[in-house]
Structure formats: C-alpha cells, structure tokens
Design a protein around this nucleic acid. Structure first.
Lengths: 314, 314
DNA sequence: GGCGCGCGATACCCCCTGGGTATCGTCGGC
DNA sequence: GCCGACGATACCCAGGGGGTATCGCGCGCC
C-alpha cells in the first residue's frame, strides 16, 4: 500500500464522487476507480458504497479513513519536522560549561540563542572542565566551555577556540578597606583572609596565586575555599575577605561588591569553546553563529578552523 | 512522498548499511540509494550521514524517522482496522428496543452477541416502538425491536421479521389467591386490582384488555398503570394486584411470582425485529446471525427476506 | 606504500504500472 | 422511453522504479 492510496481514499470520501475527487487530485476518473479498486482488493474489503446519491464509506472504509488521515498527517509532519531540524529550528543542544562561564560569555549567548531558536531545547550541564572535555569526546555533549584547551583521549579531534583572555582580579564587599581602589598589590593580599574557588573547578586561580604568593604561603593555606566563583563573589560581598578570581567577574557586577585589579597583572588560562567538528549539526552551527555575533574575535578564530561560515546558514 | 520512501528510510536506519537494508527490502542497492537521494531532495535536507563505519541519521533524519515510523504504523493499522470492521469484529451496533423485549429475546441474543463480538460496542436504547421505527428510518439506529411492524415514513423500506408470538398472561405474587392456578378466566379479573403497562409502551395490552373486559370497564379504569412490563411484574410480586402482560414474561421467571394463562387466549401483536436492508453492515449481519441462532423461526423469515445468508459469513 | 576490497554513487536499460482517452453498463429523471 | 450522469472497463503510453554494470574513494592489509 502506498501513500497515494490513502490520499485517493481521503479525497474520495471528502467529495463523495469519483469524478470530482479525481479532478481535485489532478487525475482523471478512471485511474481513481482503478486505484480505489486495487486498494479494496489489497485490504480485502469494500471501503466505499457506490450509491446513486453519492459514494460513501462503509464501516470498513470509515475505520480505514481514520487511520489514513492520521498517516497522511504524519507523513506531512515528517517533512516539516525534518526541514525544521535541518534548519536548526528544533532539536536540542547539550552544553557543558564551567560555572564561571556563567559570568561572562554565556549570559548573552544563551539569552540570544534561546530567543533566536525557541524550538531548541537547551540542556545546560555545569561541570568541571575535565569532565566537559571527556563528555564532549564521548558524544554526551554538543559543545563545551572549559578553562584551557581540552586534554585527554579524543581531545585532539575537537575544535577549540578561546572565548577571551583572563587575568586575576580581586573582589571585596563595599565596606571593605580596599573598596574604591583601582588596584591592589600582591603584598596587600598577604595578611588578608582570602577566598578562592576550589582546585577542581578553577584550578588556575589557585595556581596563579601560588605563583604570586609563594608555594607555602600562610595566606593561601588559610584561604577560604568555595565551590565556584559565584560563591567567592557572594562571600566577598558579605565581607568575609578578599575574593580572588578571573577578570570575567567584572562582566557581572553585583551590588555591594567592588573589584580591583591585582598587580602584577597575572594571566589566567583562557576560557575555551570546544566542539567536535564531526558532529556538527544545524543546531550547533546556529549556536556558533550566536557566539560569533556576540564575540567577534571568536568568529575569526572559528572561520580559521572551519572555513568562512558553513553554507547551511539560516 | 510515498510510503515506499518511509519504508526505505526506516530500513536504512535499522541496518545502518545501504546494501543490507536493500537486501532486507528485497531490492538491490542502487535503487535504494536513488530513492533515499530523492527523498532527501524532496525534504530539502540530508537525512543520513554516510560514514565509513556506517550510515546514521542526521538530526533531520532522526526527526523524520520518528514521523515515518508513526506513519507506517498507521498505514498498517488502517488495513487491519478495515479488515476487522469488514468482518464485523469492531464498530458499534445501535439497538432500539421496547422494554419488554428485555424479557425474552434480548437477554440471550445480547449475551451471545457480546461474547462473540467483544470488539463491537453495543449501544442499547430503550424506547417506545414508534420512536424506534422513526430512529431506524432516520439512520439513528441499526436495528430495532418493536411491538408490531414499524409504521410511518420510511417504514416501508425496512425489513421486519416477527421474533415470536405473544398472548395475554397474568402474573401475581406467591401469596396471591390465584398463585398456583394454571389459568384464570376473564371473569376472575373483573373485581381484582389490575396492573398493566402504560399506553405508549405496551399499547397492545391495554387494547387487548379493552376487548376482553369491555370499553368502560371499572376494573380497567381503576387499573394501576406502570411505565413498563418490568414494573408490572415487580408490583404484582409485591401483592399489589394482578399484573397483565405479554406471555414473553414467562421467559424471565422471577422468585415470588406466579404466572397464569388468561382465558380466553388473547393474542397480542408480535415482537418484531427490523432493520434497513440498505444500511446492512457486517456488524448488523453478525447480529442477525446471532438472532438466527437463538430463534430458528427468525432465521427462516430472514432468509426469505434477504436470501439464504450473506456471503460475508464470519 | 601499493594493491585489494568494501561501500555508496552513477550510468544506463527495461518493463511495470500509474495515468490518459474512449467507451460501456446501468440507473434515474424528465 | 430517451437522455444524462456516473462508475467500470478496455486499451494505450510513458515515466519511473528497479535491475545490472561500473565507477570513485577510502581504508586496511600485506
């Protein structure tokens, strides 16, 4: 049985007349008679009663038509759904990211992406950079934002572009003596209670501080350790001490906090956007477009890695 | 787009290999490649990624396949449902009947029919005979059991067969003086409180009694009137008086009641089964089969009206 | 590193079948 | 009783679905 048979049966039921149904289908009446006869032969039951007053479905025909209409609706939806998916207007995007990425590149990108692609389900997974890399290589994520380039098995197959440069900055509550300062020197941190994110989540901050303050520094040893940079800012705002984190923090100002540069300027690893070029999908391309639009420097780097924009532009 | 394209796409997704999918479909590989290419052209999107390790659906392909499988399931169900309906194994039967028919022919018929055709929904409508006839002629019922042959517009197009002959009998409670009698004479009814069904529902009983007792008989004038014959029996069982109704009542004995013949024997109109021969359906045929099997006399009458059994015997 | 092989795409051909025209059978209605 | 409407049938044609042969291209294996 072919979709043609369903279309013909539905048209015949709607017009209750072979000639008019055939005209509506764009064919002549005899082929329609033949196809309906063939359909009835295949089903093994008469589907239409040919009376003088019109052509009406039998009980079997009525049962058939219910399914036929449903099948035709599914067939139509198949094309539509596939085309939508091909244009990246539906589907899902699984994004792994380190918590601090929520400070700077992600808010704008996610807001814009979900506005431009309301049909795409965003699955956001906050996780450590190492887990993001592994999940990306294993196909469990579509795109990841990590600290530094991904390493580990499969990482060499990933495309990675830096999303921006970072250096170490300090954050204090408004009532803190350092509030209002443009910058603080490393020496000013030595006898302050320090707050920084834990090793796994933001390992670079702790490493940078070790470089600045010395390996066994008491200030570092007694530092308050938070799970992620958001908590660091929150604790600093409460006056617990001097928070230390990536300069990305400046992009998300929060009332009651004050940010100062740390001198000497201490670079931190870049935030990096990665994905598997083999698993590119229209949704991923759409996401990359949004990233391009939000951070022009990323666009140039992407073009260098993928060629000047895919032809599947929506 | 034809069902063939859906079948091919599903097979290709299942085998992840053009050659094996083609073999499973019973065709060669090149036609499958062509059909998939044509499908992708029509949808306007690549549906499968051809990699060295196999053929996998793209995001668009995955969306397409969901709909394709659903459509194919509907198409398969269309045939099955139609065949079932053609065999009278599904659908509905709308039966109109007079209340007293529940005493005799209907219990056995309905029990047997619902056992033989569990997929058919029985719609039972108790109504006066005149309404049944009109509903049958108007296409609102498939079959009706009425008192006497249907009359009124459209009734001449109906096929009607008597389901059995009836005459007037009396029913009393076990404690009644008549309990235990084989028969009662008309004279014995003259000074008894009588119970009979109301005019609309069982008009023949009242008419028969008028013939027996005389037009202005005080016994008739003071008779208790119930809506239907079931109530008559119930009231008689309570000792309210002598119930009068069709001999069909004998078929549904009820504890605490006693039935006696009324002499002289007074025939009542037959219970008649009617349907529209133009609207015959497999379900109706199946119902008529059950009626035949339950009441052999009806079978002969039906055969006389319709020919010796339809060829669509299930 | 070259050859072989597995796989999908392409080229080309055939014939099946879907659709066309012409016509018939039949049943109502005027 | 004739005509007209409608579905079925007969017959023909051509488009396309499916066949075989072959190519292009990686990958893997000596």
């Amino acid at each position: 049985m072919e979709a043609r048979h369903l279309r013909y049966a539905v048209a015949l039921a709607e017009h209750a007349h072979f000639g008019r149904a055939a005209t509506a289908l764009g064919i002549a009446q005899p082929p329609l008679s033949k196809q309906i006869a063939a359909l009835e032969r295949e089903v093994g039951a008469r589907l239409f009663d040919r009376t003088r007053r019109g052509v009406f479905p039998t009980a079997a025909g009525a049962a058939f038509l219910v399914r036929a209409r449903a099948a035709l609706a599914e067939i139509g939806a198949a094309s539509v759904d596939a085309a939508r998916a091909a244009r990246g207007e539906s589907g899902r995007l699984r994004l792994g990211f380190i918590a601090s990425a929520l400070l700077d590149p992600l808010p704008g990108v996610l807001r814009r992406f979900s506005r431009e692609r309301p049909g795409v389900r965003l699955e956001l997974h906050e996780m450590a950079s190492s887990r993001s890399s592994a999940a990306l290589a294993g196909g469990e994520l579509d795109v990841a934002v990590t600290l530094g380039r991904p390493r580990g098995i499969g990482a060499e197959r990933l495309v990675s572009v830096p999303v921006g440069h970072d250096h170490l900055v300090a954050v204090v509550g408004s009532g803190h003596p350092y509030a209002g300062l443009r910058s603080v020197a490393v020496a000013q941190l030595l006898h302050q209670p320090l707050i920084l994110a834990s090793g796994e989540d933001e390992p670079a901050v702790a490493a940078g501080l070790r470089d600045l303050l010395g390996e066994g520094s008491p200030a570092l040893a007694s530092a308050t350790v938070a799970r992620d940079v958001h908590t660091v800012i929150g604790l600093a705002a409460c006056g617990v001490g001097v928070g230390l984190g990536p300069s990305r923090m400046l992009a998300a100002p929060r009332p009651g906090t004050w940010f100062c540069e740390v001198t000497p300027r201490t670079p931190l690893p870049d935030l990096v956007l990665s994905f598997s070029p083999e698993d590119r999908s229209p949704v991923l391309d759409a996401f990359l477009d949004v990233v391009r639009a939000n951070c022009p420097v990323v666009g140039a780097a992407l073009d260098r890695r993928l060629g000047p924009r895919s032809e599947a532009a929506g």
